[in-house]
Write a protein that binds this DNA or RNA. Sequence first.
RNA 1: CGGGGUGUAGCGUAGCCCGGUUAUCGCGCCACGUUUGGGACGUGGAGGCCGCAGGUUCGAAUCCUGCCACCCCGACCA
Length: 492
Amino acid sequence: MSKNLTSRAEDYSKWYNELVVKADLAENSAVRGCMVIKPYGYAIWEKMQAELDRMFKETGHQNAYFPLFVPKSLFEAEEKNAEGFAKECAVVTHYRLQNDPDNPGKLRVDPEAKLEEELVVRPTSEAIIWNTYKGWIQSYRDLPILINQWANVVRWEMRTRLFLRTAEFLWQEGHTAHATKAEAIAEAEQMNDVYAEFAENFMAIPVIKGVKTESERFAGAVDTYCIEALMQDGKALQAGTSHFLGQNFAKAFDVKFTNNEGKLDHVWATSWGVSTRLMGALIMTHSDDKGLVLPPNLAPSQVVIVPIYKTDEQLEVIKEKANTIIKELKTLGVSCKLDARTTHRPGAKFAQHELQGVPLRIAIGQRDLDNGTVELARRDTLTKEIVKMDNLVSTVETLLKTIQNELFSKALNFRDTHITEVDDFETFKTVLESKTGFISAHWDGTAETEQKIKELTKATIRCIPMDVKKEAGECVFTGKPSTNRVLFAKAY
RNA sequence: CGGGGUGUAGCGUAGCCCGGUUAUCGCGCCACGUUUGGGACGUGGAGGCCGCAGGUUCGAAUCCUGCCACCCCGACCA
């Protein structure tokens, strides 16, 4: 492990890549574009999963599991969805290998073992799920179906980056079926709200809730709701999406039900997902040049205790003290570990825990034993204070809440000061290049204008905010009339 | 898939142009000792199919050909 991280100012992208690897979150694997999520990174993902899973269940959803493979004929049923994902699908064509007669010790695909029908490795599961739902739904009494699955999906991306874009990623995908349009829309909006609440309260990432324009919409959706976050380099990151699918999938898979008036109708659908990309959002929102900064809610260990000792006897006394603290913190629901490794010196431990973003660090040495104190250090502000042992546990508890709140406030302040209202295209370009962040501007509502702006500036419309206010104006590019502003940004 | 670049120990690298002793240095690793309140120091040690396969040559990390992998820039994207 080399000592210093590349600074954000020097090379933001390099900083990110190094941080992910050095903080032991993930690394590239032998499989092109696929990552290995290491235990520390996975522990953070598990924290996210646990909270999201709780929230899904609280809103009435159940978990289930559907197959990894989708027969090609099912996959192509919903045309727009199929077309949207076709270019990035991995496809299974054979089911057997054999010894290669021309290359001893090597295997080859058995040409005799070609599948009758190719299997698409799911890039998303609407097809297989709606084909299944068809058998489950006859009456309005079978509705709604509120299901989520935790799974991996594969999208054969050309250029990948750890967590932000990998060929295989972990996610959850909710797939619901409803008797009415209104109910499905309400569900899609509700789940987008759940994502926003999770991002803000749990990850301390402020997000803007909005609706996608037609060109940014999920393939096969009628409307795509999203939460958009702003990273420290001024680029936007789509952190979650929730789709109102209308009756598109019900029609494609012929899923009809009899409503309470005895009439046949197609079922209304939603789907919604967040992925391991959230790890990327987390890293790029809070971390600094010393490494990861974790909000207490997501830290595998919220507190770490580093003993400072000269003799074995001292270490034993400190360990005892530490274990008492750990026990007390545990009763308050605070996770704390003791770093009693004798193989590393305190300075190295300090640096490592900072790199890995542990929110609070307690150092205990002889000086503290004599004075009945400890040294308490915050990761987010890098400040230290001496705390009386008697007050320690309650101080820690309060401080963790403070850190969680302050991380959010800090990110919120950054985000809010990086939304710029712009009314002409020259300023649009200048702001995008110099100040960066979101640009709030009028748009004439056409895909052509959106496309043109993208070509000229690389900025896309991230969303039309849910709370957008009606305001007559002129399109920043064409000057045509517009009724509200939309948010543009360069995005990940 | 188009344009550019790079492959030498676990990581980062020197050497390559101009072929010639035992392939350089740093980090990391191992052992012992001294250390331990911000990334310790000393001494000793281990670790290399020089990306892969051919070719040229008395001799190849170095020259030639082919292949593979990775990185950067474009088109694609949670």
